[in-house]
Write a protein that binds this DNA or RNA. Structure first.
Length: 850
RNA sequence: GCCCCCGUGGCGGAAUUGGUAGACGCGCUCGACUCAAAAUCGAGUUCCGCAAGGAGUGCCGGUUCGACUCCGGCCGGGGGCACCA
């Protein structure tokens, strides 16, 4: 009787073998085709969680499968190691952020190794290591010298709790993405990367990313936000304070004859200038700045305006003038910070007009009958033809847009333009634990790059976190340096880079890591782009957009000829778990709860527990399950198998004890098949069967499984590949010993190897196979065996299934029709009447229309 | 408010181009082995019905010989954006 599979021994043994042999080291010179498989690298927060296990298992299955299929696979791992949790730990636990981070990395590295991932650890990197961020500083200077970096005093999102600036992307509903504190607006000098220079190519490039989820492409498209329209000039009736007029932007130039006012943003230069001479306006502007920026307040925020008393000239209606307001709903950082108000066809403008008694003229009508219909409580934004609009009357809205733009350009008071929603990327962070920006400020020379030979600019070790704010700001021995330009007194930039910069190029460094420069161009270009990138959908916009930008920026400055960093992208779902609410109303963790007599109770007191929603595992809901003890109990393979089973990989996976036990059973089942086969040996079937394989049915099943598993893994449908393997296992178990059965067991071990690699190695070795299954070739499906020679034909009457029958594959329509008509059920239902019509789909079905 | 996605057994989910709905797993039921349990193995498991048969992929309608699949309209759930002119 075969022994059970012992994962603890097998895991440790095979992990050691792989490591000693360097099995998963990627080599540049093998001559095999390259494949780069990458999962988003983790932030070293302390311990690996189930989400990591799921993410890295998926990548691992793909990497291992591709290796077996003959690819040279690059599958690296590293650490996104800068960031605020390290500083928070420093403040709370009085440890240095570096010590905290490196010790977390050690823990998590060991946990990842325990799962047996086929990673090339020789390329491991951590972004907090000067040997990484020094090269990042060099790349930053490259971009700086190419004019893609600039500094400007700008109003920023200031997080008063974390005492730092946040990117627009890091402000969620008006609150800091990390602290949750209400964000304030402050003016600071900030470093920016010119991502807007790339808006068009980043948008257009999405079309070619056909191996990305549509959802992510759409999200990026909306984020970049291209709007076509007309930018045109309103002249003031009489110039004031040196201003003769201003520009506005509209996507609806067709409605220009419906304009009944113009409005400036409270931050508009004209508004600010006027306010200096008008205390009432100044007060209004101050009031506008007060309002909260969170979603709920904006939703209900009243449209408010201040009438400047000034008038602007309508560019197409000689003699007509419009009142000029300052309005709270006009944004300074979109378009030109000024608008034309068309109440008839824009809801905000209509709300505003109703409040201030401005006219709302209809200039677009869905039908001629509705041309005279007045505008009610709702602005009309649908399609139609122009009315009340002079030379535009009768044109469709589309035609009118073109006509107005053409006229504006001909008369040079405006021009057709594209406006983007995307803003430049503010990368300054007033934090210690990040990449220092390699700039020295000098009274005489301004902002001077640190010379390349003095990189990296290393973070000082001796810092204190006793006070809030940036410790670098109060570290004179670090900040006070000579200006690299003139030698005079200088001061280091104390801002550090947004950690999204660190993750914008790590995939390049993985592919090529020379000591003296960020990467070797030729080597990096051999591996890139990443063939398959896998990670959470929460990075659908920020990280992925920044990495795309960074790659294109490197291309523009001639450093790397890669357009897109990630050819294939997959966003995996979360790992969820039930939540438990205890008798005192607090959340309970899964190990504080047990089932007694069909009821959930607390382990401690036996009091009843309520089951809450199934949600993403999180510390706050206390519904996390630590992978480590599970791996110790069931072994790496059962955990990996469970991560792949049942749920489609892009959907959420609910962790359950029953699920992991099911996986454990399958691991044992495969082991039983393999070890029994090994014990029996080839002699067992000799003479039992004659003929080549001895079991044609099983051989067919095997080859269909080989094809299906391969295809399903390639398309990342792991749950389907798992189902294929269950079916194969059942088929093998039911088959009597034969050469075909032996062959099927051996092939199944190889098919299982990417998912349950330790089990597969153990089985491979037990079967007496040479070498490692990790190095074995992926089984090949024989195309001849994929086609059935007999098929099941469905027999329908009026589209309802009435019978099934077997027929040879490729049977003629006439034969199938005759077979169907001979069916007892059909004879009974037709009751002697011939069918009116017969539809035959060869090899599939016969439908008789009675 | 705008944009997008998804609704299939008790549960997770399968189902080329429209062609036998419910593969596979979990759970459950019955049985075998066992003094017993665990483990394992076998049979069954969409619903109604003893059965014959009927119904069935969120709801209503349409196209079709035939619809989970295509079209229109609702209802429900989830995600993204946030006064973007």
């Amino acid at each position: 009787m075969a022994e059970r599979f012992n994962p603890l021994e097998a895991d440790a043994h095979w992990q050691k073998v792989w490591e000693e042999r360097g099995t998963f080291h990627a080599s540049d010179g093998s001559g095999r085709p390259f494949s780069y498989v990458l999962e988003m690298f983790p932030y070293p927060s302390g311990r690996i969680h189930m989400g990591h296990v799921r993410n890295y298992t998926m990548g691992d299955v793909l990497a291992r499968t591709r290796r077996m299929k003959g690819f040279e696979v690059l599958h690296p791992m590293g650490w996104d190691a800068f960031g605020m949790p390290a500083e928070n730990a420093a403040m709370e636990k009085k440890v240095h952020p570096g010590d905290w981070t490196w010790s977390n990395i050690d823990t998590m590295r060991a946990q990842l190794k325990r799962l047996g991932f086929a990673l090339d650890w020789s390329r491991e990197l951590a972004t907090c290591d000067p040997s990484y961020y020094g090269h990042e500083q060099a790349l930053f200077l490259d971009l700086f010298e190419a004019g893609l970096v600039y500094r400007k005093a700008s109003e920023v999102n200031w997080d008063p709790v974390d005492m730092t600036v946040l990117a627009n992307e890091q402000v969620i509903d008006g609150r800091g993405w990390r602290s949750g504190a209400l964000v304030e607006r402050r003016k600071l000098s900030q470093w920016f990367l010119k991502i807007t220079d790339f808006a068009e190519e980043l948008l257009d490039g999405l079309a070619a990313l056909d191996q990305w989820p549509d959802k992510v492409r759409l999200m990026q498209e909306n984020w970049i936000g291209r709007s076509r329209g007309l930018r045109f000039r309103f002249d003031l009736e009489s110039p004031i304070l040196g201003f003769a007029g201003f520009e506005v932007f509209t996507t609806r130039p067709d409605t220009i004859f419906g304009a009944s006012f113009a409005a400036l943003s409270p931050d508009h230069p004209i508004a600010l200038a006027l306010a200096e001479h008008d205390p009432a306006l100044a007060a209004f502007i101050a009031e506008c700045k007060q309002g909260g920026t969170n979603a709920a307040e904006l939703e209900t925020a009243e449209k408010k305006g201040f009438d400047t008393g000034l008038k602007v000239r309508h560019p197409l209606d000689a003699g007509a003038t419009l009142p000029l307001y300052v309005a709270n709903f006009v944004l300074m950082d979109y378009g030109t910070g000024a608008i034309m108000g068309v109440p008839g066809h824009d809801q905000r403008d209509l709300d505003f007009a109703r409040k201030y008694g401005l006219t709302a003229t209809r200039v677009v009508a869905p039908s001629p009958e509705e041309a005279a219909e007045p505008i009610g409580d709702e602005a009309y934004t649908g399609p139609g033809r122009l009315v009340n609009s002079d030379f535009l009357d009768g044109l469709t809205a589309e035609e009118a847009i073109r006509a107005v733009i053409a006229r504006a350009e001909a008369e040079s008071w405006g021009q057709g333009t594209i406006v983007w929603r995307l803003r430049d990327w503010g990368v300054s962070r007033q934090r210690y634990w990040g990449t220092p920006i390699p700039i020295v400020h000098c009274e005489a020379c301004g902002a001077v790059p640190v010379p390349r030979d003095r990189l990296p600019v290393v973070l000082p070790e001796d810092v204190s976190f006793e006070m809030p704010g940036n410790p670098l700001d109060r570290h004179p021995t670090w900040t006070d340096v000579d200006c690299p330009g003139c030698g005079g007194p200088g001061r280091r930039e104390t801002d550090t880079l947004d950690t999204f910069v660190d993750s914008s190029w790590y995939f390049i460094r993985f592919a090529s890591q020379p000591k003296d420069r960020p990467f070797d161009r030729a080597e990096a270009e051999r591996w890139l782009p990443v063939d398959q990138y896998i990670g959470g959908v929460e990075h659908a916009i920020l990280h992925l957009l920044y990495a795309r930008f960074w790659t294109r920026a490197l291309r523009r400055i001639g450093r790397l000829d890669i357009e897109e960093p990630f050819k294939g992208l997959f966003t995996q779902g979360m790992v969820t778990h039930e939540t438990y609410c205890g008798p005192d109303g607090g959340w309970l963790s899964p190990d504080e709860v047990e089932r007694r007599g069909g009821r959930l109770v607390t382990v401690e007191s036996g009091e009843p527990v309520e089951t809450g929603r199934t949600e993403k595992m999180s510390k706050s809901k206390r519904n996390t399950v630590d992978p480590e003890p599970i791996v110790d109990q069931y072994g790496a393979d059962a955990v990996r198998w469970f991560m792949l089973s049942d749920s489609p990989p892009d959907r959420d996976l609910e962790w359950s004890e029953a699920g992991i036990q099911g996986s454990w059973r399958f691991v044992q089942r495969v082991w039983r098949l393999a070890s029994e086969e090994a014990e029996r040996g080839p002699s067992s079937w000799l003479g039992a069967e004659s003929g080549s394989g001895g079991d044609a049915g099983l051989t067919r099943k095997l080859h269909r499984t080989i094809a299906a598993v391969g295809a399903n893994i390639e398309s990342l449908a792991f749950n389907k590949a798992v189902a294929n393997l269950y079916e194969l296992a059942t088929a093998i178990e039911k088959a009597p010993p034969s050469p075909a059965r032996s062959e099927a067991v051996e092939a199944m071990v190889r098919l299982v190897a990417p998912m349950a690699p330790h089990l597969a190695e153990q089985a491979w070795s037990a079967l007496g196979k040479e070498g490692l299954v990790a190095d074995a070739a992926w089984p090949e499906a024989d195309p001849a065996l994929l086609v059935e020679d007999e098929v099941t034909i469905a027999v329908q009457v009026n589209g309802k299934l009435r019978d099934t029958l077997n027929a040879p594959k490729g049977a003629s329509r006439e034969d199938l029709e005759a077979l169907a008509l001979a069916s007892d059920n059909v004879v009974r239902i037709l009751a002697g009447k011939p069918p009116k019509k017969v539809i035959v789909v060869p090899d599939r079905l016969v439908n008789l229309v009675a």
